[in-house]
Every structure is written in C-alpha cells, then in structure tokens.
C-alpha cells in the first residue's frame, strides 16, 4: 500500500535526524539512541491502545507477547514475528527474518554496522506497547545477518 512508503521514509528521516547533529556530524552516542528510543516509546504506548481497544483483557504475560507478535507486528511491519522463544522466566526473544526497516538495505555485510540504529525506534515501540499493557521491560536488539534481527525482551518483575 502506498502509505507504507510514507511511513518508511518518515522512519528514515527520524533516524537520520537524531543521529546527525546540527553541524552535520554523525553522533552515534547514547544520547541520540535514547532520543530515538523515546520517540518509539511514546508512539508504541499510544498505538497499542488504539490497536487493542476492542479486545478484551489478556489473561497472562504469554498471551500479551503473542498479541505483540501477531497483531502488533502485523499492524506495524506487515508480517508476523517469525519465531518467539522464551525461557519462562521473563525473557522473550522475537525473531523477524525479514525486518521491514532493514529490508531496503543491502543484504551484504557491508552495512551491518549501520543496521543497529534502525532497530532502536522499534525497541522503543515494543517497550512502550508493553508498558501500556502493564509490563515493564528492557528491550535490546541485535542483527547477525541482514535483514533478519532479534529483539530481546527482559521483563522486570516487581
């Protein structure tokens, strides 16, 4: 659909905006990444509310994670998560074999080191969505081969 292109471009612009300082210098530092994560967080927090407003309450944590993998992922990335694994102790690993924001970058190893900054917004998105559903967590991401990536969700239990 046409509007997907618009969202892709907006995401690219957000990434390039926060990683470039006013002088045009690249800043890959923690500050830029945390801004990017923050933008994702507030988007995810609000978006999941719109998405789940007609669903009834989730029964447990696993059910929430399944909804994230199916409904949330399809709404944002046009596909479901390919693999969900858990150690049943609050760690979940979501694997996407063809991640939307990496799909338009070359599959070779050439740009591998630039890939992580395209995942940070999504880390925030996930953390925000889960926070809105009542789960506090830390989300990290890694890429080993393009365009596949893994998101690791560490739930923080009170």
């Amino acid at each position: 659909m046409a509007d997907d292109a618009l969202f892709d471009f907006l995401h690219m612009e957000i990434v390039s905006h926060v990683t470039k300082s006013d002088a045009g210098l690249l800043q890959d530092g923690d500050e830029a990444m945390s801004k990017l994560e923050q933008i994702g967080y507030s988007t995810g927090y609000r978006f999941i509310e719109r998405l789940t407003k007609d669903l009834s309450r989730f029964k447990d944590e696993l059910e929430v994670m399944k909804a994230i993998c199916k409904d949330f992922w399809s709404a944002v990335f046009k596909k479901q998560v390919d693999n969900l694994r858990t150690n049943h102790q609050g760690v979940y690993v979501l694997q996407d074999n063809k991640f939307r924001f990496l799909a338009s970058i070359s599959n070779s190893r050439q740009y591998l080191e630039l890939a992580p900054k395209y995942l940070v917004f999504t880390c925030g998105l996930l953390r925000g969505a889960l926070a809105s559903l009542g789960l506090t967590c830390i989300v990290t991401a890694e890429v080993t081969t393009m365009p596949a990536c893994k998101f690791q969700v560490h739930l923080q239990r009170a």
Binding site: L6, L10, F47
Partner: peptide
C-alpha cells in the same frame, strides 16, 4: 482472552494512525 470476532478492524486506518502517532512523537521530541 481476545475475542475472535473483534479482530483488528481497519488496516488502512491503523496504518494512518501509526504514521500520525509517530509523527506526533517526533514533533514533541
């Protein structure tokens, strides 16, 4: 548990809301 009938409604609308919310988060940042 999620009711099966009430699945995510209109994907077109959802798309545009995602864009709108992302843009809003950007502007506030």
């Amino acid at each position: 548990m999620a009711r099966p009938g009430a699945r995510v409604a209109d994907s077109k609308k959802i798309n545009s809301e995602l864009f709108t919310l992302t843009y809003g988060a950007l502007v506030s940042q």
